[in-house]
Design a protein around this nucleic acid. Structure first.
Lengths: 145, 145
DNA sequence: TTGCGTGCAAAGGTTTTGCATGGCA
DNA sequence: TGCCATGCAAAACCTTTGCACGCAA
């Protein structure tokens, strides 16, 4: 689809630096664009999309989709090789819309089940788990719609 | 967001009938539109989207998103109350793009983990599990990119 | 110098909104 | 009859593409 970027350019470095600086997970292409525009730099949406896709190909960023119509989200992948890192995955509350980052190694068990029984390697980074969060479940008990 | 549909109309019945007739899972708004246009009926995209959303609210259809930019998918929810029904969920192969329907009750265990440890009720119908399917994993062994 | 990345403008595809009309209750 | 669903057109939104210019190698 996209021509792979072969040069190392200013924007590749700058965008990667931006992701390393912010700890916050879900960043959209627009966020990146607005940030650099806000800083006074001239950057085009085209460049943002191309560099983001490129950084995904390089394994520096992870891309995941919350919902159709909503912009795709990107997050920085920590580059250390520590095996003991907890696995991070995303949960989206269907009720309040909140996006929750959960760190939990139990997901390895889930991955194992997918491999053993369905011969499917689950990509936990890309998958967004939909459901109802703690707060909203408590409200459901008392609220009547 | 959308005004709820309060009347029972021709299109509500027709669209639901269409979903009941086709066994195939992933149907987009365009598919519904094209189907009825192909049959010679005059239906607007607006009506399709409004009725689909409405049928989702009524619990008749399930809506799930494969990817940003790609149209949302809808599927009919079997209305029988049989507790022994296996749970169905969707796996999308990141490599070949194939969408796999998996029936497996082990998902209840996964749901239990989410509830017990993260206080999060996993909506398996809505969640699309990304990963690499059996066929593509076998190819990975031999292929060199 | 060659070719690729960039920015702008425009197009593409999906979904939503405004409004006049027609159908349901 | 009153109100709501419908269809059309247009807009909104996210993302990609075409093209000329400028920068990296």
């Amino acid at each position: 689809m996209n021509r792979k970027i072969s040069y190392r350019t200013k924007w590749q470095d700058e965008i990667l630096r931006y992701f390393r600086e912010i700890s916050n997970g879900h960043v959209t292409a627009s966020d990146v664009y607005e940030y650099f525009r806000g800083e006074g730099y001239t950057i085009g949406m085209t460049t943002v999309y191309r560099q983001l896709d490129n950084l995904v190909s390089l394994g520096k960023l992870n891309k995941y989709n919350i919902e159709t119509g909503c912009p795709a989200c990107y997050e920085y992948i920590e580059q250390d090789n520590n095996e003991n890192n907890t696995i991070c995955f995303h949960c989206k509350c269907e009720n309040c819309g909140k996006l929750i980052h959960i760190h939990c190694n139990e997901l390895k068990e889930i991955q194992k089940h997918f491999i053993d029984f369905h011969d499917f390697f689950l990509d936990s980074k890309r998958t967004v788990f939909y459901g109802v969060c703690s707060d909203c479940r408590q409200k459901e008990v008392t609220d009547i719609d």
